[in-house]
């Protein structure tokens, strides 16, 4: 009787230890996957933003009008010579031309950011 009780206690403790190890593994894997997902999303946002910066600079060089709502997506703001991603404010790209948007979503680009359009 005592042997059976000891066996079942050991099995219970072993099972609890196994569950704890599994929980730690699952929790750590979740954190890893979250970190990985954030890293990939930041990379994607960076690539998208650098392409959009190229589009803005091309528009500035050619002088063609550019509607930001139609041509650009995911840009949150233009400020101090850079554009930042809407999804990730930490991701930004420098702009050599000053740019701003009006209330209609049209993009205004100027060579000297200090001079108003």
């Amino acid at each position: 009787m005592a042997f059976r009780a000891q066996s079942s206690l050991e099995a219970l403790i072993s099972f609890a230890a196994l569950l704890s190890a599994l929980a730690i593994l699952v929790f750590s894997t979740q954190r890893l996957s979250t970190h990985f997902e954030e890293s990939v999303q930041a990379s994607s946002a960076r690539i998208s933003l650098s392409r959009q910066a190229l589009l803005v600079e091309s528009a500035a060089a050619t002088g063609l009008p550019l509607n930001i709502q139609e041509n650009l997506s995911g840009i949150s703001f233009f400020e101090r010579g850079k554009i930042s991603s809407a999804a990730r404010s930490s991701v930004s790209e420098p702009l050599f031309h000053g740019a701003s948007t009006d209330s209609e979503g049209k993009l205004h680009v100027q060579k000297n950011p200090a001079t108003p359009v």
Binding site: V40, A42, S44, R46, I47, S50, R51, L54, E93
Partner: peptide
Amino acid sequence: SSSGAHSVSSRLL
């Protein structure tokens, strides 16, 4: 992924 994004960004820059 981060290195690839940095590479694309630097090339376009």
